[in-house]
Amino acid sequence: MAARGLDREARQGLALVAPPFAYVLLVMAAPLLVMLATSLFLFKTGYREYVEGFTLANYLQVWADPIFRALMLRSLWVAGLVTLATVVLAFPVAYFLSFVVSPQRKALWLFLITIPFWTSYLIRVFLWSVILAPNGVVNSILDFFGLIERPLRMLNSVEAIVVTLSHAYAPFAILPIFVALERIDRALLEAGRDLGENRVMTFLRVTLPLAMPGVVAAALIVFIPTIGDYVTPTLIGGGRVPMIANMIQSQMLDQDNRPLGSAIAVTAMLVVAVLAAVFMALNRRFLKVRA
């Protein structure tokens, strides 16, 4: 009886997850497998000339390529900076939302915070190029007040990319930190005060450790997609500071070398996966964060 009931439940469960599972299979797993196969079984030898059969030549080429290493490191560096900037800026906002805003107004504030993100990502990135351009908003204002003689060069730099991406990912950092802060029993903060700590120490010893799951989630949510960002280095970096996605795009489309492009993509994915795994392990070991 019990076993049959369980079977039926299991079947119902499978039926429920089947459509999204099929979807993921079709648009995630299948392309990934195609890419993996392309990188392992094709090697480009000339214009529209390929050698078929298992080979690691693409990967050897990727690892030997100093440009790949430079761009991978730059991508990680930019993603790291963006993560740092985003989390550091998001924390006060989330803290304000959770601790200062009255409960009735929290929904309104969340709504206001997400309003800028109703426009598409592409347009927001493009607007930053308007803000940072030589004749853009910032330079016009500085010039108006006579603070500069020549327009500042702000575009086409790592800094501009970091600013743009930090803004683009802000809500993805604010929301998980906000949720973590909301879950903190306010009595714990009173207990910290009651046990002799002032507000700052209570924050450091109680609030911050308890908010860490949110901070960790925010860091991962920002870090991982930022590494592979394509739009911002293209529009804000102007092609002067390419990142790994630009290299993949270049191999795939400009050079028409799909096997090598696929190998770069797979390698970059592996690097990110290893980094994320190390991060999670360190996190569990030292921060003892239970998500």
């Binding site: 009173e190 207990a191 005060r193 009651d194 046990l195 002799g196 700590e197 002032n198």
Partner: peptide, 8 residues
């Protein structure tokens, strides 16, 4: 609260 001679 943090310097009062009370605990809760």
């Amino acid at each position: 609260a943090n310097v009062r001679p009370t605990n809760m």
